[in-house]
Simulated scan of single mutants.
Amino acid sequence: MLNLYGFEKIIFDGAIMTLKLSVLSVLIAFALGLVGASAKLSGSRFLRIWFDIYTTLVRGVPDIILMLIVYYGLQIILNSITAYLGWKTLQMEAFTTGVITLGIIYGAYFTETFRGAFLSVNKGEIEAARAFGLTNWQVFYRIMFPSMMRYALPGIGNNWMVVLKATALVSLLSLNDIVQNTKTAIASPITPNDSKLVFYAVAAGIYLLFTSISSIGLWWLERHFSAGVKKSHF
């Protein structure tokens, strides 16, 4: 019989924290990815160079090191700004910093996902839309974005799964996610040594539940953005 020794609420709260952290981080990464992909495909050499440096740096350095660099770097920058303005020093919350950090890190992966997807969009569709007099925004919203999403969804799904599991790294910032709260439950003196594996199994089960539900959602999105597109039988 499963016995969590009264720590169900602590683990549940950690699961909610992990979910919020994942969703907000992916929203930032998604937006940053769109900006980055647009910049790398633009005619601006300056923007291309800077976003090339950004994606190369992020993808070439381990996430845990980047997380610590961004986490402490953001606080140093904030301290410098407040000191320059003569304001009282502000301490960034672990949750806010964690969201920004994961968003910046995985924004690089979304940038490459969207860049490849934009390059896969049929140029004839774009030219036809412009020939009908659609504005640049209408071309993007009605033609480019839906077509791009169809090609990008596998990469988006993979990035989401990675971000969901990467939230475990935020426990290093003392944020009460699933991993941190599981450690708290295990460290309790009322938890028997032979039951510690139960807590790790519960934490793993929660991650598996989240990823399984995500797979269903991604399957629905794939059907939605593929509506009206004929599939090849070859």
Results as ranks from 00 to 15, higher is better:
Arg150Phe: 05
Gly73Val: 01
Gly6Thr: 11
Leu209Ser: 14
Trp220Arg: 11
Ser215Val: 01
Val35Asp: 04
Val202Thr: 13
Leu21Val: 05
Ile53Phe: 15
Phe95Lys: 04
Tyr109Gly: 02
Thr97Lys: 07
Leu164Pro: 03
Phe114Tyr: 08
Tyr151Asn: 08
Ile10Cys: 10
Leu218Pro: 06
Asn158His: 09
Ala15Pro: 02
Ser212Gln: 13
Lys40Pro: 06
Val179Asp: 02
Leu119Asp: 08
Phe30Pro: 02
Phe12Arg: 03
Gly36Lys: 02
Leu24Ile: 08
Asp13Glu: 11
Leu2His: 09
Phe46Gln: 04
Arg45Pro: 04
Glu112Gln: 15
Ser42Thr: 10
Trp137Glu: 08
Phe30Leu: 11
Ser38Lys: 08
Met149Thr: 04
Phe145Asp: 11
Met149Lys: 03
Ser42Tyr: 14
Gln75Phe: 05
Glu127Met: 09
Ser214Leu: 14
Leu153Gln: 00
Gly43Cys: 11
Glu125Cys: 00
Leu41Met: 12
Ser120Arg: 07
Thr113His: 03
Phe95Leu: 14
Val229Ile: 13
Gln75Leu: 10
Leu34Cys: 08
Lys88Gly: 11
Met148Glu: 11
Ile178Leu: 06
Ala201Pro: 06
Arg115Trp: 06
Gly228Lys: 07
Tyr109Trp: 04
Gly157Ile: 05
Tyr207Ser: 10
Val163Asp: 03
Arg130Trp: 09
Lys123Gln: 15
Ser42Glu: 13
Gly43Asp: 12
Ser171Asp: 00
Tyr84Leu: 12
Asp194Gly: 02
Gly33Cys: 08
Ala37Asp: 05
Asp63Thr: 12
Asn159Pro: 02
Asp52Phe: 01
Gly86Thr: 04
Trp50Pro: 06
Gln180Leu: 11
Ile77Asp: 02
Ile126Val: 12
Ile49Ser: 12
Leu119Gln: 15
Asn158Leu: 10
Ser22Glu: 08
Thr113Ser: 01
